[in-house]
Design a protein around this nucleic acid. Sequence first.
RNA 1: GGUCUCUUGGCCGAGUGGCUAGGCGCCGGUCUGCAAAACCGCUUACUCCGGUUCGAAUCCGGAAGAGACCUCCA
Length: 491
Amino acid sequence: MEHQLKVFNSLTRKKEDFIPINPPFAGMYVCGPTVYGDPHLGHARPAITFDIVYRYLLYLGYKVRYVRNITDVGHLENDADQGEDKIAQKARLEKLEPMEVAQFYTNRYHKYMDMLNVLNPSIEPHASGHILEQIEMVQKILDKGMAYESEGSVYFDVEKYNKSNNYGILSGRNVEEMIANTRELDGQSDKHNSFDFAIWKKASPSHIMRWNSPWSEGFPGWHLECSVMSAKYLGETFDIHGGGMDLLFPHHESEIAQSVAANGKQPVKYWLHNNMITINGQKMGKSLGNFITLEEFINGSHESLEQAYSPMTIRFFILQAHYRGTVDFSNSALQASGKAYERLMKAFARLEGIAVGESSNFDVAELEKDCHAAMDDDFNTPMVIARLFDAVKFINSVAEKQISMSIEQKTALQKIRKNFIDEILGIKQESQNETAGAGLDEELMKLIIELRLKMRQEKNFAMSDFIRDELKNTGIELKDTKEGTDWSKTN
RNA sequence: GGUCUCUUGGCCGAGUGGCUAGGCGCCGGUCUGCAAAACCGCUUACUCCGGUUCGAAUCCGGAAGAGACCUCCA
């Protein structure tokens, strides 16, 4: 392969050559959504980030198995109401089966991922469908002496594990310091240490979702599902594990510990983490009043939004920043991205109709090389987009008949469009007249535009402007161009 | 407080020890009956203070500011 993909490995904190364990196969596991609420911006970022990783690995010719889980088990509210499962609580409030709640939000998640042009994973396992495997893993860890049972729950013994291994290998945390900094606030805990984590949790009476196990009726600990399902579908050691930076500790750290304790080997070769999003410089949170669902984003209904933003605008915006940096959602930034997105798509659409002629001084091969180099360098999508705009400028200059383009240049640009815009970045055209493409609307608009053209030719500008203004009031915008008059719906 | 990350032009946001990313906005222009749109051109920044270097926004040290994670749980 002519490419050498480099990825930033959180485990080593360095960019490393990506060399899969069993080429041409590549295995990737990404932490998916907890399906107890509507999908929001916080879901979009990791989904799009690892969609890019998936797409690029496919583009490079790897046979990729992409596993992204659905977490539908065991979520306690982080508010004061202890001991109730998030899904169970929702179910009780809405008088539904817990699985109905999980299914509803899973469907919602899929719908919005589809709108964002996020490809489906190869396997989408549910935590609830792998309870047996999780019980087996708990037993395995118990057998190795790295966990203890207490009051029907089973806890991972971090201190013991750390004697022979390194708990903190991923997050840089130091167990000795954690012990030193820990103060027992109350004696109620059935854990040996505050940083021990549950791998099996006994269900409280109000907890609806529960399964039988050798220890109690309960549910598996949070970290366990990812360890179990990744091992089941990708093997005990696999290539890439992705997720948001917020999951680095304790989730991923604990995943490593469990897997090493159970299987005696590091589960993951490359850990990739996307950075977080902020909204107007603040972390998104329900308590901060800036919690925006994808539905609200796309229809513009949230009060902090000045307008609706299309799914492709959101995707383009996210791709304009590197995945390891934070990205701040603000109206002005999104509006800028929306315009940039349209300019990019318009130019490449224009390319199709361009008449070829003499070659101009524009190196398409170098542009392509730069785009590849940017992707190879830890998925630098902002750089790819920047270079694509150089092509935009070239295409527009040719379209404006300032310079010309050869057939070779045109073909090469078409290839870049297909490879980079369509396949790798996954940016697609959102047609504005989708609902009006056929039928009565189109016919009527044609007639109105023709009438207005006649008036303009007769210099009856008062009437032609009246038509334009009135249409604008009803949400249809007319634009006079050299080729004639275009129309589009404004929202 | 601990661990880590970040600080780039009006805004967003890449990047490299010397070769002015890119987008949006502004301004100028082309086009147009006008407007809008579209297109072209323009806009030389790197928190502060030291140091290394022929040369640093880029490396090192310090300061200031911002953010994330650090009880339970997912």
